[in-house]
């Protein structure tokens, strides 16, 4: 049995292709998390701000993204934008766009939560010490907000990684798609190929996500108070 497993992974460039698939998976996750941070922070500050119509608009955006399955969004943007409106976007671009659309909203909500949970007197007492507005932000508020934010951001990262297999549906060669192609080719020769390949992918996801979630829990506990 084990022989067949080894053979499947040794056949052709199978192992190398799986690693390339993993690369695509990680690329989408990392780029989308980075972009989500870039867009999410200003969004979150606006959500915590005082402009009411803007707040309602952003709230609606957040709720829509939360209620709609990411897969449906991927699908809609891939087939509507690139096919119907003749904007030719690669599957990779659409994936990163949709993941960022979702991630920025979630990130914004995290930032909003972190900022609004800081007690008002933190600003007051910092100003009372005679710190400038910039010093108040960079020395007092931001370091505290980051502590509150980081576990949530890490959590969102693992959620993104675990959502990447959705790109399978728009034929992007991520880890799972490559796995499926390998199973299709070698399944005839090795009946157990699907067990080994999907089992292997299962383990890869676990090996990536488990340490990250442990780290997030560690931070939460350490910064609990």
């Amino acid at each position: 049995m084990l022989d067949s497993a080894l053979s499947v992974f040794r056949m052709g460039r199978n192992m190398a292709r799986l690693m390339e698939g993993l690369g695509v998976t990680l690329e989408i996750s990392v780029v989308a998390v980075g972009l989500s941070l870039i867009f999410g922070v200003p969004l979150g500050l606006m959500m915590a701000g005082s402009n009411r119509p803007l707040k309602w608009l952003l709230r609606g955006y957040l709720e829509f993204v939360r209620v709609m399955p990411i897969l449906a969004l991927l699908f809609i943007f891939y087939y509507s934008l690139s096919k119907f409106w003749n904007i030719n976007l690669s599957a990779l671009t659409v994936s990163i766009f949709v993941f960022t659309l979702w991630g920025a909203a979630e990130m914004g909500d995290l930032v909003r939560g972190a900022v609004t949970s800081l007690p008002r007197h933190q600003w007051d007492s910092a100003r009372a010490l005679g710190l400038s507005e910039g010093q108040v932000s960079f020395r007092v508020i931001i370091p505290q907000a980051i502590r509150r934010l980081l576990p949530g951001v890490i959590n969102l990262t693992t959620r993104m990684i675990k959502t990447t297999p959705f790109v399978f549906f728009i034929n992007l060669p991520d880890l799972l798609k490559v796995g499926q192609q390998i199973v299709e080719v070698s399944g005839l020769r090795y009946p157990l190929a699907s067990v080994w390949v999907y089992g292997f992918i299962f383990i890869i996801y676990f090996v990536i996500c488990y340490p990250i979630s442990l780290f997030s829990r560690y931070l939460e506990r350490r910064w609990a108070s």
Partner: peptide, 10 residues
């Protein structure tokens, strides 16, 4: 720590 899709494929 694993995606539903991968679980379902398996």
């Amino acid at each position: 720590n694993t995606p539903l899709m991968v679980q379902l494929f398996f």
